[in-house]
């Protein structure tokens, strides 16, 4: 009886379905392709994942608060342009450029938040506009050309994305940062007062406001957090691949939102899970990596992503309905 109810509780967690999917996926790929679990492939998998993952962590909290941000990919592309352009033109040192790039992200987040909360424009429209403005600016200031990055040598670069080896695995420092951010934000969401406010703001903003929750402040802060994480991820990426391309990050917004909802966070707000999000990130990254290894053309990737989204949404809605029927 106790065991049964324990199992039932585990199974009804929103993270359970995605977790099973991830296990199945890893099992299937490693059976089909021995190269899948090789150190080289895992290193490969863990190189880019933290970068997309950082954006996804911010997006999880933002979506739990009932908003989302389509401008993350543009900020991902533009922030490194700001940093490297300032550096290459000798306007600022790399460190100062780094800080200015993050400040720029704060302004983007503040603007998104202000339009959404004060002017009460849906975040879809606001951040769609911001996506175009920021991307357009990146293309305009660079004439569409990548910025040079290989002339720099700063300890900052090692702190952000320095490479080191554990056994046969090559790991970037960005993975450690991602794990740290995930732990802190997971803690914030479930264990802190801020997390209570985030869920309340997304669940029923009017009722939350009536209890003295600062809904506007909470949402604006999360828009800023998401933008800053996107900028930081973009800078990380530019250092790792030694290129600051004004087009980079294009289309990330949808992949990030897909990862968040696959993990079990509600698109409508009020419920969110960082653990689920981490699983969601791994599901899509593993999928992209694995289908190429087992010989499916990479171009087919989106079919799988779409299928997974639909399947997971069906699962979450079924769990939700069963949950309500049971009471």
């Amino acid at each position: 009886m106790a065991i049964k109810s324990f199992v039932q509780r585990v199974v009804s967690q929103p993270e359970f379905g995605p977790f099973v999917l991830l296990v199945v996926e890893i099992a299937a790929f490693s059976l089909r392709s021995p190269a899948f679990l090789s150190a080289g492939n895992i290193s490969n998998l863990l190189a880019f994942t933290p970068e997309l993952g950082m954006i996804t962590l911010g997006m999880t909290l933002l979506m739990t608060a009932g908003e989302f941000d389509l401008s993350v990919g543009s900020v991902f592309g533009f922030a490194p342009i700001v940093m490297w352009t300032l550096y290459n033109t000798h306007v600022a040192s790399l460190e100062v450029g780094f800080v200015i790039a993050l400040l720029f992200a704060v302004i983007v987040g503040l603007a998104n938040g202000w339009f959404v909360t004060y002017l009460k424009i849906p975040s879809f429209l606001v951040t769609l506009g911001m996506l175009l403005v920021v991307r357009g600016t990146a293309l305009y200031v660079t004439d569409g050309f990548p910025q040079r990055t290989w002339t720099a040598d700063s300890p900052l670069m090692n702190i952000v994305v320095g490479e080191f080896a554990i056994g046969g695995l090559y790991i970037y420092a960005s993975l450690l940062w991602f794990i740290l951010f995930a732990i802190i934000l997971g803690y914030v969401l479930t264990e802190s007062k801020a997390g209570n406010w985030i869920q309340a703001a997304g669940g029923n903003p009017e009722a939350a406001r009536a209890r003295g929750v600062r809904v506007t402040y909470t949402k604006v802060a999360l828009f800023i957090l998401t933008a800053v994480l996107s900028a930081y991820a973009g800078i990380t990426s530019s250092i790792r691949v030694s290129a600051a391309n004004p087009n980079s990050g294009t289309g990330y917004e949808l992949e990030v939102i897909a990862m968040v909802v696959i993990g079990g966070t509600a698109l409508s707000g009020g419920r969110g899970t960082i653990i689920g999000t981490v699983v969601g990130i791994l599901i899509l990254r593993t999928m992209r990596n694995g289908i190429v290894l087992i010989g499916v053309p990479g171009l087919a990737y989106n079919i799988f992503v779409g299928g997974i989204i639909l399947a997971m949404m069906a699962l979450h809605s079924w769990l939700e309905r069963r949950h309500h029927a049971g009471t």
């Binding site: 997304g202 029923n204 509600a266 009020g270």
Partner: peptide, 8 residues
């Protein structure tokens, strides 16, 4: 209604 947050 409105006074409670149903997800919490």
């Amino acid at each position: 209604d409105s006074a409670l947050i149903s997800q919490l």
